[in-house]
Amino acid sequence: MRRWVLIALPYAWLLALFLAPFIIVLKISLSDIALARPPYMPQLDFGAGLAGLREFFAALDFENFWFLTTDDLYWKAYLSSLQIAVVSTFLTLLVGYPIAYGMARSAQEWRPTLLMLVILPFWTSFLIRVYAWMGILSTEGLLNQFLIGLGLVSDPLTILNTNTAVYIGIVYTYLPFMILPIYAALEKMDESLLEAAEDLGCSKFSAFWLVTIPLSRNGIIAGCFLVFIPAIGEFVIPSLLGGSDTLMIGKVLWEEFFSNRDWPVASAVAVVLLLILIVPIVLFQRNEQKAREAEG
C-alpha cells in the first residue's frame, strides 16, 4: 500500500507536468497556424466518442513542419546550432583536458581544493557568468584595452555580438562539465601504467597518447556530450553575447514564441529540436551504460 503511494506520487507529478505538457506541444505542432490565440484547431471532442477521436486525428497535419522547410531561417538555424555546438564542444575539450590532467596529476592534498574550485562556478549564476564576459569582450572592454595597451592591435577588435563571443561563452560556462568527467577518469588511472609504458619503450608523449588518452576515453566522451547536448538548445549565451546574425535554434524558438507569437510553429521547432537531440542523448546513455558495466 505504502509502496503504491511512494510510486504513484512522483509518477503522477511527472506525468502531469512533464509528459502531458510535452504531448500538448506535439498536438499544437500538428494544429493549424494561428497567432497566440487558443484554442487551436482541431479540438478533441470527448462527447463524440470514437468518431470524434477519428475526426480529431484526421484533422491533424504536418503543415507547420512543412512550413519549417519552406523558410530557410529554420534549417539554417538548426545547422548553425549544430555547428556552434560541435565547434565549442571541441574547444571546450581542448581547454578542459589540460586542466583535468593537471588536476589529476597534482599532489594528493591539493586535489579536493582544485575540485572545489572547478565546481564553485557551477553554483554561481549562469546568467552572471555570461554577463561577466560582456564587459570584457565589448569594443571598449578590458580585452581590447589590454591588447591595445600591449600594442598588439591598433584598432579595437569586434568580438562581442559575434559567433566568437558565443564560442567563448559556451566554453567558459560549460567548462566544468568537461573537466569533471575527464578528471574522474584520469584520477582513477594507475600511474604505474605510465611507468610500465615507459619501461616498455614509450616516450613520454607516446605513453600519453597510447595509455592516458584511451583510458580517459569514457570521461572525454561523457564530457563532450555534457557540453554538446545543452549547447544546441542554448538561449542565454547567443542572446547576450551573439549578434543579430548569430542563428541558434533556442533563440529562434524564443523569438517565434515571444515576438511572433506563432505558437504552433514554435511547437514544431521544439519537436524538431528534440528529434535532433535524441541521437546524442541515446549515444550518451549508451556510453554511460557501458562505462558502468565496465566498472562492474
Binding site: 500538448i24 547536448i229 545543452p230 538548445g233 533556442g250 524558438l253 514554435a266
Partner: peptide
Amino acid sequence: VMPEVITGLSL
C-alpha cells in the same frame, strides 16, 4: 537533457 526552451514552452 531537455533544452530549457522546450521545458518552458511545454509547461
